[in-house]
Design a protein around this nucleic acid. Structure first.
Lengths: 116, 116
DNA sequence: CCGTATCCATGCCGATACTG
DNA sequence: CAGTATCGGCATGGATACGG
């Protein structure tokens, strides 16, 4: 470990990952491979079309996701993780492991703070 | 790998880490141990008092940082990482490694997009 | 089916001034 | 020294309606 804060390159990855639905979108694409817009929308419950479009565009801009449009009626658009995007998986994995390991901590806290 | 998106626990860690100055603050506390408010302010160039206070309070709220006040004049307040907070280090390390490994990718992009 | 456009609420963050 | 108070800009994200 022992990361020099001055040379810290932590922000770059964070910038890509931050966004309300971005992690889940990426995990879906990582696990299930290529997905259509409507498939993603179904699998990410609660997300609106606007946000899904926006996040996908941003991830595309970062070269993390690839977008392929099939010029046909009705339209068909497929999204997939790029090789570059796959390099983010260790980070997601680290966060996921941390999250599963520390669910208890969170539950303890809720006990301490009795609801109104 | 192969994280089930449905059981995804990625957001918890992310919520703690997200904030303009939080990663650098944590990195400093991890590397240099206990630090006074003014020390942190010096070592995090550009941060305002307000943001430093705010972020530290939020990290404290998450049990990631501990705050110790010495009741004396002039005031002295020391901050340090908790054991729980240290568990975040692998995540920071993963992001840092990713960042250093992919600086080049970013530079390539800038070349492709000639400035105005 | 895969988007845009618009409106709007909230929150993050900076700048600045003030305090025990 | 270590904060708090106030103001204001800007980005994020939700709701909804519309379009090719």
């Amino acid at each position: 470990m022992d990361i020099e804060p001055e040379l810290c390159r932590v922000e770059d990855a964070l910038d890509i990952l931050v966004g309300k639905w971005k992690p889940i979108i990426l995990l879906h694409l990582l696990k299930n491979g290529t997905q259509r817009f409507s498939e993603l929308k179904r699998h990410v419950p609660g997300i609106t079309q606007k946000m899904l479009t926006k996040h996908l565009r941003e991830l595309e801009e970062e070269d993390v996701v690839e977008r392929v449009v099939y010029p046909q009626v009705p339209p068909k658009v497929e999204y997939s993780i790029t090789e570059y995007g796959k390099s983010l998986e260790p980070i997601l994995a680290a966060m996921h492991e941390w999250g599963t390991k520390h669910v208890l901590h969170k539950q303890q806290k809720i006990k301490q703070q009795p609801s109104s």
